[in-house]
Amino acid sequence: MLPWSADLAGRIDHHTVDSALLRGNPLGDPARRPLWVYVPPGYDDDPARRYPVVYVIQGFTGHLAMWANRTPFRQPFPELADAVFARGDVPPAIVVYVDAWTSLGGSQYLDSPGTGRYHSHLCEEIVPWVDAHYRTVPERDRRAITGKSSGGYGAMVTSMLRPDLFGAFATHAGDALFEACYQVEFPARARALRDHYEGSYEAFLADFRSRVAGTRPSDMGLIETYAYASAYSADDDGTVRIPFDVNGAVRPEVWERWLVWDPVRMAARPAYAEALASMRAVWIDAGTRDEWYLDLGATAFHEAVTAAGLPADRVRFELFDAGHMAIEYRYPLALAWLCERLAG
């Protein structure tokens, strides 16, 4: 595998969107966001043809430019996605790469007084912008969303919250079954705060922002949990509530606020179950060795989707031999499967 960028059969247009909804966000993060839009081969040849759209969102710490990162012996996903359409045996689609980065590492694609209005930004600004500037089929049954890890979480939750916009989704090792993927980490977080910051998240944040990130072993775990708390349990005034005490024990009143956003539990509520049952296609997968036990979350969410009444022929569920990282080779499989169903 050559280490240089490959020529695409389609093309990627680079844009910047000035978001009114992100302006003045609590973290002071930029309101102007990059947006990449891929159009498949042949898009410019037939000005009358319209296309389904697949929105791609990233995991925790992801930002748009990272899609261009190259690792040895592998291609980045935009090239893998282009190859799906270059073969000519998959119905073509527009693929939109969305940026929802925050200075905490991510937004979980939710509206929160701790981070900003990232769910609304995606649904009320990015989707209409793409429909206005490209020849899309502007219907929910021709629109899908896909992502991995926190991006997989965003795909699940966004589809349940806005089934009027998205009629299909794929989640690769998406955050789900919160007691398995999040709660087990709380004692380690409490120990790190105790040993280095006298139990204070405020002291950690001040230190983290004063030096190169990641230079202490506890950095990424602590900022990750704080970012989730900012998305799931921030008060209206922006105060972020941590779901565990100094000993790592759960604070029930805060933990319950997290559980409200667990996709497995959301899927059991009537409105969200109805949304899931209406989907044209749902892809769920995870590695059997996932370090955050998101294979268990994937299994539990698959069970919840089935219980919601989605017919089996609209669901693809698979556990495969891998961990959580370096599973980008799964993304084009889901992309092709979604595009076949969006075209049907």
Rank of each mutant, 00 (worst) to 15 (best):
R23M: 13
R241P: 07
V95E: 09
F60N: 06
H196T: 06
S150L: 14
P40G: 09
S230P: 01
G221H: 06
P187E: 12
R162F: 11
A281D: 08
A6N: 12
S107V: 00
V260G: 10
G116T: 01
P311G: 06
T215G: 11
E256T: 12
A300R: 11
G151H: 02
V305I: 09
L165E: 12
A100P: 00
S103K: 04
M160A: 02
F85A: 06
E124I: 05
T146H: 10
Y118C: 04
R216I: 08
A267N: 08
G287A: 08
A93I: 10
P52G: 08
A231G: 02
D45W: 03
F320G: 00
T239V: 14
G214L: 13
A271K: 11
E253L: 08
L8M: 15
C339E: 06
G199H: 00
G287C: 09
E328Y: 06
Y134S: 03
F208G: 03
P128N: 07
I145L: 15
I126Y: 05
V96R: 00
P92Q: 07
P311S: 07
A93H: 03
D46T: 13
L21H: 03
V90R: 03
D245R: 07
F169W: 13
T146G: 07
R74D: 14
Y329M: 12
F317R: 01
P41W: 00
S107T: 04
A268G: 10
G105C: 02
G174M: 00
C339A: 13
A100Q: 15
T288F: 10
A307Y: 04
D164M: 08
V137D: 07
I12R: 00
M279R: 15
Y226S: 02
E202N: 09
L222F: 06
A48N: 15
H14P: 00
Y97L: 14
A68I: 05
P72W: 07
L319N: 09
Y331I: 13
I327T: 14
P72M: 11
G116E: 07
A155C: 06
Y201D: 08
P47I: 12
D295Q: 14
H15R: 05
P3N: 13
L110G: 08
Q58W: 04
P76H: 13
V157Q: 05
G154W: 01
A81R: 05
L193C: 04
D175H: 11
E179Q: 13
D219G: 05
R330P: 06
V240C: 01
E125M: 09
R74Y: 11
S210W: 09
S210L: 08
Y55E: 11
D207F: 03
D313S: 03
G309D: 02
G59R: 00
P76Q: 08
L259H: 03
V246T: 13
H14F: 07
V53G: 05
